[in-house]
Design a protein around this nucleic acid. Sequence first.
DNA 1: ACCTGAACACCGTTCAAGT
DNA 2: ACCTGAACACCGTTCAAGT
Lengths: 190, 190
Amino acid sequence: MAETRRDSLIDAAAQLLDRGGPAAVTLREVGRAVGVSHNAPYKHFADKDDLLAAIASRELRRQAAPRPTTTGDDLSQPTARALMIGYVRWAMRHPERFKLTFGRWTRENAELAEAADSSRSRLVAAVMTAQAAGDLPAGDPERVTALLLALAHGAADLALSGHLAADGKGHVDPEDLVADLFGYLKTASR
Amino acid sequence: MAETRRDSLIDAAAQLLDRGGPAAVTLREVGRAVGVSHNAPYKHFADKDDLLAAIASRELRRQAAPRPTTTGDDLSQPTARALMIGYVRWAMRHPERFKLTFGRWTRENAELAEAADSSRSRLVAAVMTAQAAGDLPAGDPERVTALLLALAHGAADLALSGHLAADGKGHVDPEDLVADLFGYLKTASR
DNA sequence: ACCTGAACACCGTTCAAGT
DNA sequence: ACCTGAACACCGTTCAAGT
């Protein structure tokens, strides 16, 4: 469990990110939290953006990692629906990490791109299982996956920026929209 | 058509935003483009964030404005589907304005909140029309609207950040996802 | 009412220098 | 291989002063 200096820097940066967003992640503050000078990060990351990318890829890898179940070992894979609900909950719980992770790059940073692809592959597999069970409509699994991902992502993003519901009345929860979509898709797949 | 100093500042800021994002919008550069000092904007906007909010609300108002039709006067209202396609196209055409407009605030800035509400009201009305025609499933119009908005928003945002499709192969277009959703919803509404 | 110039605190990045 | 301190260019914001 030895934590490297690099990991400590990412930890500190993520903490600053959570409150205050990317602007609050200053190399001086990161260095101060770890106990090094504000130039030390340059020995571990190319620049500030590279440090932010490291947070994003770590977040992506954690999300892809199997969560420990409280009811002992569970060998069954999570359903597409469970994955999407998990995605939305993670976004609402860690807004800044969510925005950062899906904010830019991915195609620029190799590590980030790989993490994103592996995360999606997992979802595609779950979609195919659901299709076979008749819970999701047939058709290109990649495209159905994109549909699910787009809805969950948009619901979370709009909810975070306050654009989802109207003036207070009729508050719409992003999880409700995920449930609605799965309901419609099940009806459409018969 | 007299353009006020305030409008000129918004124009210049929007142009800087389009290339380079919010970080490229510096008060010094804005002032230079208009021909004033870098402090002049403070007489028209509280701070930089207020200037960015002005760009967002102008964009929101423009999107809500009826587009001139090339085939003369058309008194019919745009369909929900047309509105969503228009939304996605606008996002793909002006990524930075899209990200800025739906990035934060809205509930903080009164002008922005009003523009957003009026924009959504228009979409809710179109949704109700489609529901009556049997093209969209029955149920709370606000909630169905949120579903459409979430998908269009998520599809555009993921496409812009490169998270929509896998490694080049099987490129998924955000407009395709909007079309897919309307297809599924029509099937589910019968 | 609107604008200017100087100044302040802060930031990312570079670089010479240390171990 | 990793770190430090000084320095540079740049930025948002404030303020006294002008018209």
